[in-house]
Design a protein around this nucleic acid. Structure first.
Lengths: 248, 248
DNA sequence: CGAGAGCTTGAGAGCTGTCAATACATGTGG
DNA sequence: CCACATGTATTGACAGCTCTCAAGCTCTCG
C-alpha cells in the first residue's frame, strides 16, 4: 500500500530511538522497545498518498514520526469530512487492531510524512506479556474516547462560530489564561480546517470575516491573531470548557 | 447521592450472581468476582433520580442491573442533549474512573432502575493484578469508542430523516437481512429519542409523519412498524453501514 | 370531568449548504 | 517581465434543513 524508501531495522539503533519518543510507548522498557523495533518498518509517505482506507483490514499500528495525516470519513456519494488532523508523535490504528475491525476512517498524508509501522503480530505478543503496554494502550484509547466525546459535544451544542472560536482557542493550548493578544498558525489549509469543523469552506470564510469585523481576530493567510481573548472565550459556552464548574 | 434501600453484600451470594451476568465482568474468574462483590453496593434508583452529574468526581463503576439510564450533556444556559440511553447489562463510569477525570456527562434514571456500584479502590486493585480484567475493560472502552465514532459520523453525514431511519433500523438489531415488515418499540418517550438523535421533539414528529405519508412506516404510540425495509435501508447511505464494502 | 404529560401541527426565522463568480497567490514557461 | 495555469480563498444570491414559539390535540390518571 505505502511505497517510498522503507528502512528495515537491521542495526536496531535509530528505530529504537525513534520509538522511545512516542508517548504511546514511553512507558515501555528497553527490551520491549527492542522487540517492537525489530518488526517495525519506517517509510516516507509523500503528500497526497493514502495510508489506509476506510473499510480496509488493519495491518498494525502506524506511528506518525513526522508530517501530518488527515483522518476522514466519506459518504456513499463521494463527499468527505475530516475528523481529525494527526501530527508527529501520535499513532493510528490501535482501535481497528484491538477490535479486529476494519478501519473506520481513511488516512491520507496532507504533508510529506514519515510513518513507522508496527506489525500486528509483535504488538499482540507484547500485549499478551506486557501489562505495562496494555495499560499504555488503554490510556491511549481512553484519551481518544474523551476527545471524540468532546468533538461530539461540540457538534451537538455549538454553532459554527462557536466551533471556530473554540478551535482557535484550543490552538493556544498552553498560555491558557493569558489575556494578551496572541498569534496562532492554522495547522492546515482552510478548506481542511473547515471540514474538520464540519463547515463548508465558504461558511468558514464568512465566520472568520465576521470575527474580524467584530474586532476579535485578525487574519493574514494562515496566521490568526487573537485580539480579544476575553470576548472570544465567552462565545463558546461549553459547560466543560473552562476551568472548573461547580456541578451539583 | 443515591438513596433507596442499599443492600450490602454480606452473604456474598446474590450479588456475585448478578455481577457474573455483566458482559464487562463475564471473563473474570470466580475469585475476582467475589473480591469485587465484597465492595459492591446494590441500590434502587427511582425514575427521575440523578445517578451522577457532569463535572462531578467519579466514585467507581456503575453497573445497570435494570431500568434505563439517560446520559446527557448540558449547555451553559440549561438546555440538554441526550447522548445515549443505557439499559440493563451495561456499565457507566469506566472512562472517568480510569482517567481520573470528572464525569463528562450526567446520568439520570428515566425508568425505575437498579444499580450495582463497584468502588474505585477494589476496581483499581483488581486492575493492577488481573490482566484479564484489564483486557475486559480495554475491550469495553474500545466498543464505546467505536460507538461514539459512529455517532459522530451520523451527525456529520446524515440529515434528520436519515438519522431517524438509521435509528429505527438499528432497533431491529438481529433479523438484520429480512425484508418482511417488522414492528419495533421505541425504547423511551419520543422527546428523549428526539434529543438522542439531536432533533427537536417537533422535528422528530414531523419526520415520523413524513415517513408514514411515504408508506415506509406506521406509528402507533411507541410501536413503529417498518413497512418497507428495502426502501428504508436505502435512505441512510452511510458508507460503513451495510454489510461489506469493497474499500480500496 | 379536569389536569397534566406527551405529542402533533403551523408559521416564521436562523443557520448552514449549494452553486456560481470573482479575487488572490504561486509557480511555470515564453 | 508578462501571460497563463493552478490551487486557494473570498463573496454573493438563493434554497433547504432545522429550530423556536405558539397553539391545539390525545391519552392517561386521579
Amino acid at each position: 500500500m505505502a511505497s517510498g524508501e522503507t528502512t528495515r531495522s537491521s542495526s536496531a539503533g535509530p528505530l529504537e530511538e525513534l520509538l522511545c519518543n512516542f508517548p504511546l510507548l514511553a512507558e515501555l522498557d528497553r527490551g520491549a522497545i527492542r522487540l517492537l523495533a525489530r518488526a517495525a518498518v519506517r517509510y516516507d509517505l509523500p503528500h497526497g498518498r493514502v495510508l489506509f482506507r476506510q473499510g480496509a483490514p488493519c495491518a498494525g499500528i502506524h506511528l506518525v514520526a513526522g508530517g501530518q495525516i488527515k483522518l476522514s470519513i466519506q459518504t456513499a456519494h463521494g463527499s468527505e469530512k475530516v475528523i481529525e488532523l494527526v501530527g508527529a508523535g501520535r499513532s493510528l490504528g490501535e482501535l481497528a487492531l484491538l477490535t479486529s475491525q476494519r478501519y473506520l476512517m481513511s488516512a491520507e498524508a496532507v504533508a510529506d510524512s514519515t510513518i513507522v509501522q508496527l506489525g500486528a503480530g509483535p504488538v499482540f505478543e507484547e500485549l499478551a506479556q506486557n501489562g505495562q503496554f496494555l495499560r499504555s494502550i488503554l490510556r491511549e484509547v481512553c484519551t481518544r474516547l474523551t476527545r471524540r466525546t468532546r468533538d461530539l459535544e461540540d457538534h451537538l451544542l455549538l454553532n459554527g462560530t462557536q466551533r471556530v472560536t473554540g478551535f482557535l482557542l484550543d490552538l493556544l493550548s498552553v498560555d491558557a489564561f493569558s489575556c494578551e493578544p496572541a498569534t496562532i498558525t492554522l495547522p492546515a489549509k482552510k478548506s481542511l480546517i473547515a471540514s474538520r469543523l464540519n463547515l463548508t469552506q465558504e461558511h468558514f470564510s464568512r465566520i472568520l470575516h465576521d470575527l474580524q469585523s467584530a474586532g476579535l481576530i485578525a487574519v493574514h493567510g494562515r496566521q490568526v491573531c487573537l485580539l480579544d481573548l476575553r470576548r472570544l472565550r465567552t462565545l463558546p459556552d461549553r459547560v466543560n470548557g473552562g476551568a472548573r464548574q461547580d456541578a451539583c
